[in-house]
Simulated scan of single mutants.
Amino acid sequence: MAFIHDLQARNASVHTQTNYQRDLQAFLAFYLKHSLSELSDAEFTDWAQIQPNALRRFLSERMAQGIGARTLARQLSAIRAFYDFLLHRGLVTLNPAKGIKAPKQGKPLPKSIDVDWTQTLLDQPLNSWQNVRDQAVFELLYSGGLRVSECVGLDLLPGLAMLNSGWVQVLGKGQKHRLAPVGSKALQALQAWLTVRPTYAKPHETAVFVSARGTRLGVRSVQLSLDKRTVQAGLPTKMSPHRLRHACATHVLESSGDLRAVQEILGHANLSTTQIYTKLDLQHLAQVYDLAHPRAKKTPTQSLDE
């Protein structure tokens, strides 16, 4: 097939060549079957007669067969690329796949870890100032469901202005501020880090978490530290900061069943800053969090009024 030779000339991988050829054959077989044509795949040449509706029916049938969105997107891409090739050769006058959108691909949730593994990860000996810092980072990621970018981006002010009341203020996606809960374990870890931080932070550095250079800690450094901690804890899994965030959401939701509170804790993109500060009952959120999060257990007298 001339199209496959063209892919080869453009250094497409063998995997792509094989998949695209198979995808085109699958579509052509579908089209000939439903057009009641007596032509074989090898005999068919009139690609110009194929209309967008035929492509839509093909995708619909494949979806009904349980074919995944990723595979369907690749098949549509193969057909689109083939018609671009035909257009370039002057064999057709339009690309029927051009205006057709591939089915949306659902984003798989990251794997969570159970409470016992989380406790094992967080309850490791702290033998250096970096361990003390990392403990505060990991506890905060798990305690408040923070994104790692929110954690390393945390500043002393206004970030820790409400720390004694059990909250940190983070700047999330879309430059949106939100309050994230801090359980007692995370609070202890943060206070331990803040005690030693002045020794290692450069003057006038505003970041809560700093590196050995005394400047703001980077995302990559957090991942490397988490890798070391995972090995230290003997956990048979790959960890990431986002898994700690997801573990927070999973464990709170499993215990409370309060999806709304979990959404607020995580600060999902569909929640605006106005909703966070005017519609959310922070006292209710604090109660749900205290009862549900394995490492919260704030004292009954701790409240937002402190």
Rank of each mutant, 00 (worst) to 15 (best):
M63C: 01
A26H: 09
T93G: 11
D6I: 00
A12M: 09
R57D: 10
A26D: 12
R220N: 02
G183P: 11
V231D: 07
G218F: 04
V222I: 12
G145Q: 10
L55W: 06
V148F: 04
G159T: 06
K297I: 00
I265L: 07
C248G: 11
S272R: 04
T93P: 00
A212P: 00
F58M: 07
L91E: 15
L72C: 08
E38C: 13
L94T: 15
L140I: 10
K173L: 13
L160I: 05
D23T: 04
D281V: 10
I4M: 05
R22A: 09
V182R: 02
I4V: 12
L121Q: 06
V137D: 02
K228M: 03
A186T: 13
R80K: 15
L141F: 03
V252G: 03
I265E: 03
R178D: 05
R56A: 11
W129E: 00
T250V: 08
L271M: 10
K185L: 09
E306H: 13
K297N: 13
M1P: 10
M1F: 06
L187Q: 12
A29F: 03
A269K: 07
W129I: 07
E264I: 14
H204Y: 11
L266W: 05
A249W: 09
F209I: 01
T71Q: 03
A269G: 01
L291T: 10
A48D: 12
A292P: 06
L217N: 01
D155M: 08
L7W: 01
H204M: 05
F209G: 03
W117R: 14
P203W: 04
D134H: 02
A286H: 03
S272P: 03
A54S: 12
Q124T: 15
G145K: 07
A292Y: 02
C151Q: 08
L122C: 12
T16L: 01
H15S: 11
G234V: 08
V262T: 09
E61S: 05
L266G: 06
N95G: 08
A73S: 12
H251N: 07
R213E: 01
S13K: 03
W117C: 08
R220V: 01
V231T: 14
V182C: 06
S211D: 01
Y200H: 07
T18Q: 15
Q175C: 09
R80N: 15
R216Q: 10
H88I: 05
D305W: 13
L179T: 11
N131D: 15
H204G: 00
V262L: 08
P158N: 12
Q21M: 04
G234T: 05
H177V: 06
L94S: 15
L126K: 10
T273Y: 04
R295F: 09
L217P: 00
N53W: 04
K202W: 00
G183M: 04
Y289Q: 05
E61V: 02
